[in-house]
Nucleic acid binder design. Structure first.
Lengths: 344, 344
DNA sequence: CTGAAAGCGCTTACAG
DNA sequence: CTGAAAGCGCTTACAG
């Protein structure tokens, strides 16, 4: 474990300057700051006091907190397994609130004794993930595919399974099949749309933009979706809903609106927890294993942290980024009771 | 913030001995250990390095982890609000795994830079909570009423609302009303049973032990419950199910078993999240606000930590426990579609 | 088992 | 803005 002395030597500055950088003092040159942070991140510097534990991994949400959602709750359970298996502790952090003015993210993490981070992000906060990667801090994004250089992620590729889901619908004779995407665009929803289009193509059904509907990822969004679909003419006979809460809201609203599922409308939803068993009828869904993903995040971080850090040399040469790890998790289709033959 | 020097002075030992105790060295007398821990806890000692953050609150499960359950997920969301409001960080900890051999719980917390703890417990691990309280470490139990001396807790008193729930059933004409409790006994379920009995009494219905059924707090437990109830003769026409997952499992199994809800069987469930809206029919339930409880836990800890710690005097006199705070949260009855008039 | 003293990692006036 | 040096909080051989 490198000390301030090692960092100082490698960055070619005094320990005082290292300390100033690490404490975010305003009285340091940008050049010194850059060199020190670079070396500190590369060598995985963590301030140590005696034996004080420094095995913290942070679960960081960069934008709106989605804590408490089925996905995040299940993810958390998976991370708890990872904690046990790899001997880490878990901290929960709101990146935007925890960061001080003009503070580098990696410094925020160091200040809190954090060794690595599991990042949750939404489209508007992708740049935070990129910045953390740029600083060289060990971090992995879960649940979104962020194609930025240097960013590690664990991702459920739902493209193929989305295609299977819509194949399942065409196999039941459906031709007018709608798809419901989130209001907010991200790579996941792009994948699911791609799967949808591929399935239509292979069944010889023409892609129709009017069949692509957007809704908020909330129960209420699902309710609105059903009202939208029922107002269309001709009505779709099936819909693929790419978000769990929206799917649940749609199922409930169908009942209220007198739309029978699956007799009048087949619904394929999406599930990353156990929602498919809680609704009625039990929901045919593209399923994603958030538990495994949470554990995997810890496995990836463990790997990143086990790789021998770049030696603290006497000279800073290249800006060697930390290793980028990208992993794809399985998704699968489960057929339950919310899909049935196309009505005549 | 006291230093090892202050602790040493107050405990009448050298700084070396203080350090040894705080690092769990085996080469210390029990007497020295006792005195030092007593002073350290009383004065809320936290090891400090420079400005390294020490505002961690731990969310600690003492027994089986229930992370990912709707209650814990919602609680977590509430705690995230508390983090923001009171400026703490949150760590997740498994008390039994994180503790080293022969280590005091308060030392485990200090080692990890934790200032206070939110405890989740089950009946078999109540003694861990008592021990933490005995050591004088700031901690609050959420979701269980632990009537041990020195233990602080935040509790949802569901006795009154449970009574209202069963009043609601008797008001609909039901007389054969079963109640389903957890396999594991705790104060909550005792409260709910007491409410049930009070409601029966006020409706002039005799209490019948055969109407008290136990099930595991899982969907499968609910399924078994329905099979049990349907095997009874005469059959109950209503049941009060005191656990969310059990209630959900019971609703689903009813449908599979051809038992119509509420026509054949009225069900009052329990909900600490939003499960009542996810099931069909939407569930009449005793509701508990886990979100508010999570936030309240941080408020209580903030209060505990703001109380000026006992001054580090030159002599240890009494074993002054930290303040005990006990707070009760509201529960309420929501009538939805799973309850109806007693069948003829 | 304990204390006095040396030592370690980090921070911070002080001087430039 | 920076470094040499003093200082702080903690730990740890060393000696008893």
């Amino acid at each position: 474990m490198p000390s301030v002395r090692d960092i100082a030597k490698s960055a070619g500055v005094s320990v005082a300057t290292v300390s100033r950088v690490l404490n975010n003092s305003p009285r340091v040159s940008d050049e010194a700051k850059r060199k020190v942070l670079e070396v500190a991140n590369r060598s995985r510097y963590v301030a140590t006091v005696g034996k004080r534990s420094t095995t913290n991994i942070a679960f960081v949400y960069t934008g709106e907190s989605s804590l408490g959602s089925p996905f995040d709750a299940t993810l958390m359970r998976g991370m708890a397994l990872g904690m046990e298996e790899f001997g880490f502790d878990l901290m929960v952090l709101d990146a935007r609130r925890a960061r001080r003015r003009h503070e580098a993210y990696s410094h925020m993490f160091m200040r809190k004794g954090i060794r690595g981070a599991v990042l949750r992000t939404t489209a508007p906060t992708v740049d935070i993930c990129r910045q953390i990667a740029d600083e060289g801090f060990p971090a992995v994004v879960v649940g979104s595919r962020i194609e930025e250089p240097g960013v590690s992620y664990i991702y459920s590729d739902s493209r193929q399974t989305s295609q299977e889901a819509v194949d399942h619908l065409t196999g039941l004779g459906h031709r007018r099949i709608a798809v419901c995407l989130n209001i907010v665009d991200d790579s996941d929803h792009a994948d699911r749309l791609a799967g949808y289009r591929a399935a239509l193509a292979s069944a010889g059904i023409e892609y129709d933009e009017k069949m692509v509907v957007r809704a908020t990822a909330l129960r209420e969004g699902g309710a609105q979706l059903i009202r939208r679909l029922m107002g269309m003419s001709p009505r779709p006979t099936a819909v693929f809903i790419t978000d769990p809460y929206t799917a649940m809201g749609a199922l409930n609203e169908s009942r209220k609106a007198g739309v029978r599922v699956p007799e009048d409308l087949s619904i394929v939803g999406f599930d990353d927890a156990e929602l498919r068993y809680m609704v009625y009828p039990e929901m045919t869904a593209v399923c994603q294993d958030a538990l495994a993903m949470g554990r995997e995040a810890f496995s990836v971080l463990n790997e990143m942290l086990s790789i021998k850090p770049a030696p603290v040399s006497d000279q800073v040469k290249t800006t060697s980024r930390s290793t980028v790890i990208r992993r794809s998790m399985q998704t699968w289709l489960e057929v339950h009771d919310s899909t049935g033959p196309c009505p005549p």
